[in-house]
Amino acid sequence: NRRVIAMPSVRKYAREKGVDIRLVQGTGKNGRVLKEDIDAWLAG
Score class of each variant (00 low, 15 high):
residue 1 N to H: 13
residue 1 N to L: 04
residue 1 N to V: 10
residue 2 R to H: 15
residue 2 R to Q: 14
residue 2 R to L: 15
residue 2 R to D: 15
residue 2 R to M: 10
residue 2 R to F: 06
residue 2 R to W: 04
residue 2 R to T: 15
residue 3 R to G: 15
residue 3 R to V: 15
residue 3 R to E: 15
residue 3 R to T: 14
residue 3 R to C: 07
residue 4 V to M: 03
residue 4 V to Q: 05
residue 4 V to L: 05
residue 4 V to E: 04
residue 5 I to F: 05
residue 5 I to G: 03
residue 5 I to T: 08
residue 5 I to H: 07
residue 5 I to Q: 07
residue 5 I to C: 05
residue 5 I to D: 07
residue 6 A to T: 04
residue 6 A to F: 02
residue 6 A to R: 02
residue 7 M to Q: 14
residue 7 M to P: 09
residue 7 M to A: 15
residue 7 M to T: 15
residue 8 P to G: 07
residue 8 P to Q: 08
residue 8 P to Y: 07
residue 9 S to G: 11
residue 9 S to V: 12
residue 9 S to C: 14
residue 9 S to L: 11
residue 9 S to M: 11
residue 9 S to A: 15
residue 10 V to E: 06
residue 10 V to A: 04
residue 10 V to T: 07
residue 10 V to C: 07
residue 10 V to P: 01
residue 10 V to L: 03
residue 11 R to D: 02
residue 11 R to F: 06
residue 11 R to I: 06
residue 11 R to K: 08
residue 11 R to N: 02
residue 11 R to G: 02
residue 11 R to H: 06
residue 12 K to C: 04
residue 12 K to M: 06
residue 12 K to V: 06
residue 13 Y to N: 01
residue 13 Y to W: 06
residue 13 Y to R: 03
residue 13 Y to Q: 03
residue 13 Y to K: 02
residue 13 Y to F: 07
residue 14 A to Y: 01
residue 14 A to C: 05
residue 14 A to G: 05
residue 14 A to N: 00
residue 14 A to L: 01
residue 15 R to H: 09
residue 15 R to A: 09
residue 15 R to W: 09
residue 15 R to I: 11
residue 15 R to N: 09
residue 15 R to S: 08
residue 15 R to E: 06
residue 16 E to N: 11
residue 16 E to S: 13
residue 16 E to G: 10
residue 16 E to F: 12
residue 16 E to W: 09
residue 17 K to A: 10
residue 17 K to Q: 14
residue 18 G to Q: 11
residue 18 G to L: 11
residue 18 G to A: 11
residue 19 V to T: 04
residue 19 V to A: 06
residue 19 V to Q: 02
residue 19 V to C: 05
residue 19 V to I: 11
residue 19 V to N: 00
residue 20 D to T: 05
residue 20 D to P: 09
residue 20 D to G: 04
residue 20 D to Y: 06
residue 20 D to N: 12
residue 20 D to A: 08
residue 21 I to H: 03
residue 21 I to L: 09
residue 21 I to N: 00
residue 21 I to W: 06
residue 21 I to K: 00
residue 22 R to Y: 14
residue 22 R to T: 11
residue 22 R to K: 10
residue 22 R to W: 14
residue 23 L to F: 13
residue 23 L to M: 12
residue 23 L to T: 12
residue 24 V to H: 01
residue 24 V to N: 00
residue 24 V to L: 09
residue 24 V to Y: 01
residue 24 V to W: 02
residue 25 Q to D: 14
residue 25 Q to Y: 15
residue 26 G to Y: 03
residue 26 G to R: 03
residue 26 G to A: 10
residue 26 G to V: 03
residue 26 G to D: 02
residue 27 T to M: 07
residue 27 T to Y: 04
residue 27 T to L: 05
residue 28 G to T: 02
residue 28 G to F: 03
residue 28 G to S: 05
residue 28 G to N: 03
residue 28 G to C: 03
residue 28 G to Q: 03
residue 28 G to Y: 02
residue 29 K to Q: 10
residue 29 K to N: 10
residue 29 K to Y: 10
residue 29 K to F: 09
residue 29 K to H: 11
residue 29 K to E: 09
residue 29 K to S: 10
residue 29 K to P: 09
residue 30 N to I: 08
residue 30 N to C: 07
residue 30 N to K: 14
residue 30 N to R: 14
residue 30 N to F: 13
residue 31 G to E: 09
residue 31 G to Y: 09
residue 32 R to T: 06
residue 32 R to K: 08
residue 32 R to E: 10
residue 32 R to L: 08
residue 32 R to F: 07
residue 33 V to S: 01
residue 33 V to L: 06
residue 33 V to Y: 01
residue 33 V to P: 02
residue 33 V to F: 01
residue 34 L to D: 08
residue 34 L to K: 11
residue 34 L to Y: 12
residue 34 L to P: 00
residue 34 L to G: 08
residue 35 K to Q: 11
residue 35 K to R: 12
residue 35 K to T: 08
residue 36 E to Q: 15
residue 36 E to T: 14
residue 36 E to N: 14
residue 37 D to M: 01
residue 37 D to L: 00
residue 37 D to R: 00
residue 37 D to E: 01
residue 38 I to T: 01
residue 38 I to Y: 00
residue 38 I to Q: 00
residue 38 I to F: 00
residue 38 I to S: 00
residue 39 D to A: 06
residue 39 D to Y: 05
residue 40 A to D: 11
residue 40 A to T: 14
residue 40 A to V: 12
residue 40 A to Q: 13
residue 41 W to E: 05
residue 41 W to T: 06
residue 41 W to S: 06
residue 41 W to Q: 06
residue 41 W to G: 03
residue 41 W to I: 07
residue 42 L to V: 12
residue 42 L to I: 14
residue 42 L to N: 06
residue 42 L to Y: 09
residue 42 L to P: 05
residue 43 A to Y: 12
residue 43 A to V: 12
residue 43 A to F: 12
residue 43 A to L: 12
residue 43 A to N: 12
residue 43 A to P: 08
residue 43 A to D: 11
residue 44 G to T: 13
residue 44 G to V: 14
residue 44 G to N: 14
